[in-house]
Design a protein around this nucleic acid. Structure first.
Ligand SMILES: [Mn+2]
Ligand SMILES: [Mn+2]
Ligand SMILES: [Mn+2]
Ligand SMILES: [Mn+2]
Lengths: 163, 163
DNA sequence: CAAATAGTTTAGCCTTGGCTAACAATCATT
DNA sequence: AATGATTGTTAGCCAAGGCTAAACTATTTG
Protein backbone atom coordinates (compact mmCIF):
# COMPACT_ATOMS: atom_id res chain seq x y z
CA UNK A 1 0.00 0.00 0.00
CA UNK A 2 2.68 2.46 0.89
CA UNK A 3 5.93 2.84 -0.94
CA UNK A 4 8.33 3.79 1.78
CA UNK A 5 11.25 2.27 0.02
CA UNK A 6 11.28 4.26 -3.16
CA UNK A 7 12.72 7.68 -3.77
CA UNK A 8 11.60 10.31 -1.33
CA UNK A 9 9.36 12.93 -2.89
CA UNK A 10 11.74 15.32 -4.63
CA UNK A 11 9.78 18.20 -3.23
CA UNK A 12 9.95 17.59 0.49
CA UNK A 13 7.62 19.99 2.21
CA UNK A 14 8.78 21.00 5.63
CA UNK A 15 12.17 19.28 5.50
CA UNK A 16 12.05 18.98 9.27
CA UNK A 17 9.05 16.69 9.45
CA UNK A 18 8.85 15.56 5.85
CA UNK A 19 8.36 11.79 5.87
CA UNK A 20 8.12 11.37 9.61
CA UNK A 21 4.40 11.38 10.11
CA UNK A 22 3.63 9.26 7.12
CA UNK A 23 0.98 6.63 7.46
CA UNK A 24 1.85 3.64 9.60
CA UNK A 25 3.99 1.03 7.87
CA UNK A 26 2.12 -1.94 6.37
CA UNK A 27 1.32 -4.48 9.05
CA UNK A 28 3.70 -7.24 7.97
CA UNK A 29 6.62 -4.86 7.76
CA UNK A 30 5.75 -3.32 11.11
CA UNK A 31 5.51 -6.76 12.69
CA UNK A 32 8.89 -7.74 11.32
CA UNK A 33 10.44 -4.67 12.93
CA UNK A 34 9.28 -5.64 16.40
CA UNK A 35 10.14 -9.27 15.78
CA UNK A 36 13.69 -8.37 14.88
CA UNK A 37 14.03 -6.45 18.10
CA UNK A 38 12.65 -9.35 20.14
CA UNK A 39 15.12 -11.70 18.48
CA UNK A 40 18.00 -9.36 19.24
CA UNK A 41 16.96 -9.31 22.88
CA UNK A 42 17.28 -13.06 23.08
CA UNK A 43 20.90 -13.05 22.06
CA UNK A 44 22.25 -9.79 23.34
CA UNK A 45 23.04 -10.77 26.91
CA UNK A 46 24.72 -13.91 25.64
CA UNK A 47 26.81 -11.83 23.28
CA UNK A 48 27.83 -9.42 26.00
CA UNK A 49 28.88 -12.23 28.31
CA UNK A 50 30.88 -14.00 25.62
CA UNK A 51 32.47 -10.77 24.48
CA UNK A 52 33.41 -9.87 28.05
CA UNK A 53 34.82 -13.33 28.73
CA UNK A 54 36.95 -13.01 25.60
CA UNK A 55 38.14 -9.59 26.69
CA UNK A 56 39.00 -10.80 30.18
CA UNK A 57 40.96 -13.71 28.77
CA UNK A 58 42.92 -11.57 26.36
CA UNK A 59 43.54 -8.65 28.72
CA UNK A 60 43.79 -10.45 32.04
CA UNK A 61 44.85 -13.94 31.07
CA UNK A 62 41.73 -15.53 32.51
CA UNK A 63 38.01 -15.04 33.01
CA UNK A 64 36.77 -15.57 36.52
CA UNK A 65 33.12 -15.43 37.56
CA UNK A 66 33.83 -12.78 40.18
CA UNK A 67 35.29 -10.42 37.59
CA UNK A 68 32.35 -10.94 35.29
CA UNK A 69 29.99 -10.22 38.16
CA UNK A 70 31.69 -6.99 39.14
CA UNK A 71 32.02 -5.78 35.54
CA UNK A 72 28.43 -6.63 34.72
CA UNK A 73 27.22 -5.22 37.99
CA UNK A 74 25.19 -8.31 38.89
CA UNK A 75 25.47 -10.88 41.65
CA UNK A 76 27.78 -13.84 41.43
CA UNK A 77 24.77 -16.12 41.57
CA UNK A 78 23.45 -14.52 38.42
CA UNK A 79 26.77 -15.07 36.69
CA UNK A 80 26.95 -18.66 37.82
CA UNK A 81 23.53 -19.37 36.38
CA UNK A 82 24.42 -17.66 33.13
CA UNK A 83 27.62 -19.65 32.82
CA UNK A 84 25.57 -22.83 32.99
CA UNK A 85 23.52 -21.51 30.08
CA UNK A 86 26.59 -20.59 28.07
CA UNK A 87 27.87 -24.08 28.72
CA UNK A 88 24.66 -25.67 27.50
CA UNK A 89 24.83 -23.48 24.42
CA UNK A 90 28.33 -24.77 23.73
CA UNK A 91 29.95 -21.36 24.02
CA UNK A 92 32.17 -21.90 27.05
CA UNK A 93 33.77 -24.79 28.88
CA UNK A 94 34.17 -24.70 32.63
CA UNK A 95 35.19 -26.94 35.49
CA UNK A 96 33.59 -26.19 38.86
CA UNK A 97 35.40 -23.50 40.80
CA UNK A 98 37.83 -22.85 37.93
CA UNK A 99 38.01 -20.07 35.44
CA UNK A 100 36.30 -20.13 32.06
CA UNK A 101 37.36 -20.88 28.53
CA UNK A 102 35.62 -20.14 25.27
CA UNK A 103 34.89 -22.94 22.84
CA UNK A 104 35.74 -22.40 19.18
CA UNK A 105 32.19 -21.25 18.64
CA UNK A 106 32.42 -18.98 21.65
CA UNK A 107 35.60 -17.44 20.32
CA UNK A 108 33.97 -16.79 17.01
CA UNK A 109 31.04 -15.07 18.69
CA UNK A 110 33.39 -13.05 20.89
CA UNK A 111 35.34 -11.81 17.89
CA UNK A 112 32.28 -10.97 15.88
CA UNK A 113 30.65 -9.15 18.78
CA UNK A 114 33.82 -7.30 19.65
CA UNK A 115 34.33 -6.20 16.06
CA UNK A 116 30.78 -4.95 15.78
CA UNK A 117 30.97 -3.24 19.15
CA UNK A 118 34.16 -1.48 18.11
CA UNK A 119 32.71 -0.25 14.85
CA UNK A 120 29.70 1.21 16.60
CA UNK A 121 31.86 2.84 19.26
CA UNK A 122 34.30 4.29 16.75
CA UNK A 123 31.46 5.48 14.61
CA UNK A 124 29.87 7.36 17.47
CA UNK A 125 33.16 9.00 18.29
CA UNK A 126 33.78 9.87 14.66
CA UNK A 127 30.36 11.45 14.68
CA UNK A 128 31.44 13.69 17.53
CA UNK A 129 29.95 11.96 20.53
CA UNK A 130 31.91 12.22 23.76
CA UNK A 131 33.86 9.05 24.53
CA UNK A 132 32.06 8.34 27.76
CA UNK A 133 28.63 8.70 26.21
CA UNK A 134 29.70 6.81 23.12
CA UNK A 135 30.70 3.83 25.23
CA UNK A 136 27.35 3.75 26.98
CA UNK A 137 25.34 4.12 23.79
CA UNK A 138 27.43 1.57 21.92
CA UNK A 139 26.86 -1.07 24.57
CA UNK A 140 23.16 -1.03 23.83
CA UNK A 141 23.05 -0.02 20.18
CA UNK A 142 25.47 -2.66 18.94
CA UNK A 143 22.85 -5.40 19.19
CA UNK A 144 20.44 -3.59 16.93
CA UNK A 145 22.71 -2.55 14.09
CA UNK A 146 22.29 -4.50 10.86
CA UNK A 147 25.24 -5.54 8.74
CA UNK A 148 24.18 -3.00 6.16
CA UNK A 149 24.31 -0.16 8.66
CA UNK A 150 27.52 -1.51 10.10
CA UNK A 151 29.18 -1.34 6.70
CA UNK A 152 28.06 2.24 6.28
CA UNK A 153 29.37 3.12 9.72
CA UNK A 154 32.72 1.58 8.84
CA UNK A 155 32.86 3.63 5.65
CA UNK A 156 32.07 6.76 7.63
CA UNK A 157 34.89 6.02 10.06
CA UNK A 158 37.32 5.46 7.23
CA UNK A 159 36.42 8.74 5.59
CA UNK A 160 36.67 10.65 8.84
CA UNK A 161 40.07 9.23 9.70
CA UNK A 162 41.46 9.67 6.19
CA UNK A 163 40.98 13.41 6.03
CA UNK B 1 43.58 4.46 36.04
CA UNK B 2 42.82 5.04 32.41
CA UNK B 3 41.90 8.35 30.89
CA UNK B 4 39.44 7.47 28.21
CA UNK B 5 37.64 10.71 28.45
CA UNK B 6 40.43 13.15 27.75
CA UNK B 7 41.79 14.22 24.40
CA UNK B 8 42.87 11.33 22.22
CA UNK B 9 46.62 11.21 21.71
CA UNK B 10 47.35 13.75 18.97
CA UNK B 11 49.55 11.18 17.33
CA UNK B 12 47.23 8.24 16.86
CA UNK B 13 49.25 5.27 15.80
CA UNK B 14 47.41 2.85 13.55
CA UNK B 15 44.28 4.95 13.08
CA UNK B 16 42.35 1.77 12.23
CA UNK B 17 42.70 0.08 15.58
CA UNK B 18 44.00 2.94 17.63
CA UNK B 19 41.94 2.98 20.81
CA UNK B 20 39.91 -0.13 20.14
CA UNK B 21 41.91 -2.76 21.93
CA UNK B 22 42.85 -0.56 24.80
CA UNK B 23 42.74 -2.01 28.26
CA UNK B 24 39.31 -2.78 29.64
CA UNK B 25 37.43 0.25 30.96
CA UNK B 26 37.70 0.87 34.68
CA UNK B 27 35.26 -1.34 36.54
CA UNK B 28 32.81 1.33 37.70
CA UNK B 29 32.50 2.79 34.23
CA UNK B 30 32.09 -0.64 32.70
CA UNK B 31 29.41 -1.50 35.21
CA UNK B 32 27.53 1.69 34.47
CA UNK B 33 27.48 0.80 30.77
CA UNK B 34 25.74 -2.51 31.38
CA UNK B 35 23.45 -0.97 33.98
CA UNK B 36 22.30 1.65 31.52
CA UNK B 37 21.44 -1.04 29.02
CA UNK B 38 19.50 -3.03 31.64
CA UNK B 39 17.56 0.07 32.58
CA UNK B 40 16.72 0.75 28.95
CA UNK B 41 15.39 -2.78 28.63
CA UNK B 42 12.96 -2.18 31.44
CA UNK B 43 11.30 0.72 29.68
CA UNK B 44 11.65 -0.03 26.02
CA UNK B 45 8.65 -2.30 25.55
CA UNK B 46 6.52 0.16 27.46
CA UNK B 47 7.73 2.95 25.20
CA UNK B 48 7.00 0.97 22.07
CA UNK B 49 3.48 0.17 23.22
CA UNK B 50 2.73 3.73 24.18
CA UNK B 51 4.23 5.07 20.98
CA UNK B 52 2.22 2.60 18.91
CA UNK B 53 -0.98 3.42 20.76
CA UNK B 54 -0.39 7.09 20.09
CA UNK B 55 0.24 6.39 16.42
CA UNK B 56 -2.88 4.28 16.10
CA UNK B 57 -4.97 6.99 17.70
CA UNK B 58 -3.62 9.73 15.47
CA UNK B 59 -3.61 7.73 12.25
CA UNK B 60 -6.61 5.50 12.78
CA UNK B 61 -8.71 7.43 15.24
CA UNK B 62 -8.54 4.73 17.88
CA UNK B 63 -6.26 2.12 19.40
CA UNK B 64 -7.73 -1.35 19.65
CA UNK B 65 -6.01 -4.30 21.27
CA UNK B 66 -6.36 -6.41 18.14
CA UNK B 67 -4.47 -3.86 16.07
CA UNK B 68 -1.72 -3.63 18.63
CA UNK B 69 -1.45 -7.41 18.68
CA UNK B 70 -1.18 -7.71 14.92
CA UNK B 71 1.29 -4.85 14.60
CA UNK B 72 3.43 -6.10 17.45
CA UNK B 73 3.19 -9.66 16.21
CA UNK B 74 2.15 -11.07 19.59
CA UNK B 75 -1.01 -12.71 20.87
CA UNK B 76 -4.00 -10.75 22.05
CA UNK B 77 -3.53 -12.24 25.48
CA UNK B 78 -0.08 -10.72 25.65
CA UNK B 79 -1.47 -7.34 24.69
CA UNK B 80 -4.28 -7.59 27.21
CA UNK B 81 -1.81 -8.28 29.97
CA UNK B 82 0.42 -5.43 28.89
CA UNK B 83 -2.51 -3.02 28.82
CA UNK B 84 -3.16 -3.84 32.45
CA UNK B 85 0.44 -2.90 33.21
CA UNK B 86 0.20 0.34 31.25
CA UNK B 87 -2.93 1.10 33.20
CA UNK B 88 -1.21 0.48 36.52
CA UNK B 89 1.62 2.70 35.38
CA UNK B 90 -0.87 5.48 34.68
CA UNK B 91 -0.04 5.64 30.99
CA UNK B 92 -3.38 4.59 29.51
CA UNK B 93 -6.99 4.48 30.53
CA UNK B 94 -9.24 1.69 29.37
CA UNK B 95 -12.68 0.31 29.93
CA UNK B 96 -13.14 -3.41 29.39
CA UNK B 97 -13.81 -4.31 25.76
CA UNK B 98 -13.34 -0.70 24.62
CA UNK B 99 -10.47 0.95 22.86
CA UNK B 100 -7.61 2.67 24.64
CA UNK B 101 -6.73 6.23 25.51
CA UNK B 102 -3.47 7.73 26.62
CA UNK B 103 -3.29 9.69 29.85
CA UNK B 104 -1.50 13.02 29.82
CA UNK B 105 1.61 11.23 30.96
CA UNK B 106 1.11 8.61 28.29
CA UNK B 107 0.79 11.25 25.62
CA UNK B 108 3.97 12.88 26.76
CA UNK B 109 5.81 9.57 26.59
CA UNK B 110 4.33 8.85 23.17
CA UNK B 111 5.49 12.18 21.79
CA UNK B 112 8.95 11.89 23.26
CA UNK B 113 9.38 8.36 22.00
CA UNK B 114 8.03 9.18 18.60
CA UNK B 115 10.31 12.18 18.25
CA UNK B 116 13.35 10.18 19.26
CA UNK B 117 12.37 7.30 16.99
CA UNK B 118 12.00 9.71 14.07
CA UNK B 119 15.36 11.30 14.61
CA UNK B 120 17.08 7.93 14.68
CA UNK B 121 15.23 6.81 11.57
CA UNK B 122 15.94 9.98 9.65
CA UNK B 123 19.52 9.89 10.76
CA UNK B 124 20.03 6.39 9.44
CA UNK B 125 18.48 7.36 6.12
CA UNK B 126 20.60 10.49 5.93
CA UNK B 127 23.59 8.28 6.52
CA UNK B 128 22.67 6.26 3.47
CA UNK B 129 20.93 3.25 4.98
CA UNK B 130 18.12 1.74 2.95
CA UNK B 131 14.70 2.74 4.25
CA UNK B 132 13.62 -0.78 5.07
CA UNK B 133 16.77 -1.57 7.00
CA UNK B 134 16.73 1.82 8.65
CA UNK B 135 13.25 1.17 10.03
CA UNK B 136 14.29 -2.15 11.50
CA UNK B 137 17.49 -0.80 13.04
CA UNK B 138 15.77 2.29 14.39
CA UNK B 139 13.16 0.27 16.22
CA UNK B 140 15.85 -1.28 18.38
CA UNK B 141 18.49 1.44 18.46
CA UNK B 142 16.17 4.23 19.56
CA UNK B 143 16.06 2.96 23.14
CA UNK B 144 19.81 3.13 23.52
CA UNK B 145 20.58 6.55 22.11
CA UNK B 146 21.47 9.21 24.66
CA UNK B 147 20.24 12.77 24.37
CA UNK B 148 23.74 13.83 23.52
CA UNK B 149 23.92 11.46 20.58
CA UNK B 150 20.40 12.35 19.58
CA UNK B 151 21.34 16.01 19.32
CA UNK B 152 24.30 15.15 17.15
CA UNK B 153 22.12 13.01 14.93
CA UNK B 154 19.68 15.88 14.55
CA UNK B 155 22.51 18.20 13.56
CA UNK B 156 23.70 15.66 11.00
CA UNK B 157 20.21 15.43 9.50
CA UNK B 158 19.95 19.20 9.27
CA UNK B 159 23.28 19.49 7.50
CA UNK B 160 22.44 16.71 5.08
CA UNK B 161 19.09 18.18 4.18
CA UNK B 162 20.40 21.72 3.89
CA UNK B 163 22.96 21.00 1.19
C1' DC C 1 49.00 -26.80 58.45
C1' DA C 2 44.98 -24.56 60.35
C1' DA C 3 42.10 -20.85 60.04
C1' DA C 4 40.36 -17.05 57.75
C1' DT C 5 39.17 -15.00 53.45
C1' DA C 6 37.76 -15.07 48.90
C1' DG C 7 35.40 -17.21 45.22
C1' DT C 8 31.70 -20.43 43.44
C1' DT C 9 27.57 -22.95 43.43
C1' DT C 10 22.93 -24.16 44.71
C1' DA C 11 18.22 -23.45 46.27
C1' DG C 12 14.44 -20.83 46.16
C1' DC C 13 12.15 -16.56 45.27
C1' DC C 14 10.44 -12.72 42.07
C1' DT C 15 9.07 -10.00 37.73
C1' DT C 16 8.73 -9.67 32.85
C1' DG C 17 7.01 -11.03 28.62
C1' DG C 18 5.84 -14.63 25.84
C1' DC C 19 2.30 -18.60 24.82
C1' DT C 20 -2.47 -21.54 24.44
C1' DA C 21 -7.04 -22.61 25.63
C1' DA C 22 -11.35 -21.41 27.37
C1' DC C 23 -14.61 -18.04 28.16
C1' DA C 24 -17.04 -13.41 27.68
C1' DA C 25 -18.51 -9.35 25.33
C1' DT C 26 -19.45 -6.66 21.25
C1' DC C 27 -20.68 -6.05 16.58
C1' DA C 28 -22.59 -7.14 12.02
C1' DT C 29 -25.88 -9.49 9.29
C1' DT C 30 -29.65 -11.32 8.31
C1' DA D 1 -33.86 -10.02 17.70
C1' DA D 2 -30.89 -14.15 16.98
C1' DT D 3 -26.75 -15.80 15.50
C1' DG D 4 -22.02 -16.02 14.07
C1' DA D 5 -17.78 -13.58 13.70
C1' DT D 6 -14.66 -10.69 15.79
C1' DT D 7 -12.58 -8.90 19.63
C1' DG D 8 -11.13 -8.86 24.54
C1' DT D 9 -10.19 -11.21 29.02
C1' DT D 10 -8.73 -14.68 32.17
C1' DA D 11 -6.24 -18.68 33.83
C1' DG D 12 -2.37 -21.18 33.81
C1' DC D 13 1.91 -22.45 31.71
C1' DC D 14 6.96 -21.40 30.54
C1' DA D 15 11.85 -19.37 30.11
C1' DA D 16 14.93 -15.58 31.03
C1' DG D 17 17.28 -12.89 34.09
C1' DG D 18 17.45 -10.68 38.29
C1' DC D 19 17.94 -11.28 43.68
C1' DT D 20 19.35 -13.28 48.75
C1' DA D 21 20.90 -16.74 51.79
C1' DA D 22 23.36 -20.74 52.69
C1' DA D 23 26.66 -24.25 51.56
C1' DC D 24 30.75 -25.51 49.57
C1' DT D 25 35.68 -25.09 47.53
C1' DA D 26 40.07 -22.89 46.91
C1' DT D 27 43.52 -19.78 48.24
C1' DT D 28 46.05 -17.03 51.32
C1' DT D 29 48.10 -16.11 55.46
C1' DG D 30 49.41 -16.54 60.40
MN1 LIG E 1 29.41 -5.46 23.55
MN1 LIG F 1 26.20 -4.83 24.54
MN1 LIG G 1 9.63 3.23 18.61
MN1 LIG H 1 11.43 0.48 19.62
Amino acid sequence: MSDNDKALPPTAKSLKKSYCNDALPPIEEHTRQYETVRNAHETELIEDYVELIGDLISHRGEARAADIASRMGVSQATVSKMIRRLNELGLVTSKPYRSLFLTAEGQKMAETSRARHDIVLHFLRALGVNDHTARIDAEGMEHHVSNETLAIMQRFIDEQTKR
